[in-house]
């Protein structure tokens, strides 16, 4: 393999051209994000018509302190975090239980129930959001954390991924555990779950980022400013500034840095997760 790649390297005359193109494109891709971070570090009220000025000192972190202390941003960060965290935990919990039942337990109508879950894959949330609002309203879920969380946790794709993972647990392991008088709950908790850690991690990361960034449902269902999540609060915050750049960019940076850090830490799992689910978080 190694030898072959060296060979490859010598063979491709356009290699350096391709690398240069890649580099230029990569820089274009991250440039807006880098710009955002630079602008967020400029003194409040700074404005310029020379683009290069954004990237030169003076810099300050005063905006971050200012926004975290004197605006609703910290509250929205907290809301987003709590909602994303609870959504993730509940999603893992109910999807893994259901996947365990489908994968390891014997009961009647199992196939029908599994197909019933698969149907959910074809129901696009965006197209049922109006009746969902009506249902949430009748259940008193509008303008509440529970209203943000509950409609998001029953993920059929999660069940499908976990089922296929649970299916691959060796039969002998399961059988010997049952012979030893292991209950289903113990089997689920002690044996099957630990073996599915990679799948659980991938689902957790996707659910968390998906919830952190979700826009449409929080936009419709949250009315009070104190319950806004970041994606809903940011536009409200940003649109009070039209020509000032520094504070809105600081707000955007505060919303983005946590996910960027999570992403850089878990990039491998995220990328792998995408290619085995093929579904957007």
């Amino acid at each position: 393999m190694k030898k072959n790649s060296v060979l490859d390297r010598n063979r491709d005359p356009l290699r350096n051209v391709k690398k240069a193109i890649g580099l230029v494109v990569a820089i274009i891709f991250i440039f807006p994000i880098i710009w955002m971070l630079f602008v967020s570090l400029k003194p409040d009220g700074f404005s310029t018509t020379n683009p290069l000025d954004w990237f030169t000192p003076p810099f300050t972190i005063a905006n971050y302190i200012d926004l975290l202390l004197n605006s609703m941003i910290l509250r929205w960060v907290f809301n987003s975090f709590i909602v994303a965290l609870i959504t993730t935990v509940l999603t893992l919990f109910i999807t893994s239980l259901a996947a365990f039942a489908i994968s390891q337990m014997k009961f009647r109508y199992k196939n029908i129930i599994y197909i019933f879950f698969l149907v959910g894959l074809m129901i696009p949330g965006e197209a049922t959001i109006i009746p969902l609002y009506e249902i949430a309203k009748n259940l008193n879920l509008i303008d509440s954390y529970a209203g943000l969380i509950l409609p998001m946790i029953a993920s059929p794709i999660g069940v499908i991924i976990l089922k296929s993972f649970f299916d691959s647990v060796p039969k002998e392991v399961i059988e010997s555990a049952i012979m030893d008088g292991c209950s289903y709950f113990k089997l689920y908790y002690k044996i099957v779950l630990p073996l599915a850690k990679p799948a659980l991690a991938a689902i957790a990361i996707f659910t968390f980022i998906g919830s952190w960034n979700d826009f449409l449902w929080p936009y419709l269902s949250i009315l009070s400013e104190t319950l806004y999540t970041l994606p809903v609060g940011l536009p409200v915050f940003n649109s009070t500034y039209s020509q000032a750049y520094v504070l809105p960019m600081t707000a955007n940076a505060i919303a983005s840095l946590p996910v960027i850090i999570v992403f850089l830490f878990f990039e491998k799992q995220i990328v792998k997760g995408i290619s085995f689910t093929g579904i957007k978080g």
Partner: peptide, 29 residues
């Protein structure tokens, strides 16, 4: 590409998609 840069490329190309739609929209604006 068979290059030391490939992880950087992948990270750079993917990074925008983890940002919130609110953030990318206001960056655009």
């Amino acid at each position: 590409l068979n290059s030391k840069l490939k992880t950087f490329f992948r990270t750079a190309f993917f990074l925008p998609s983890i940002l919130s739609v609110a953030v990318i929209s206001f960056l655009a604006i």
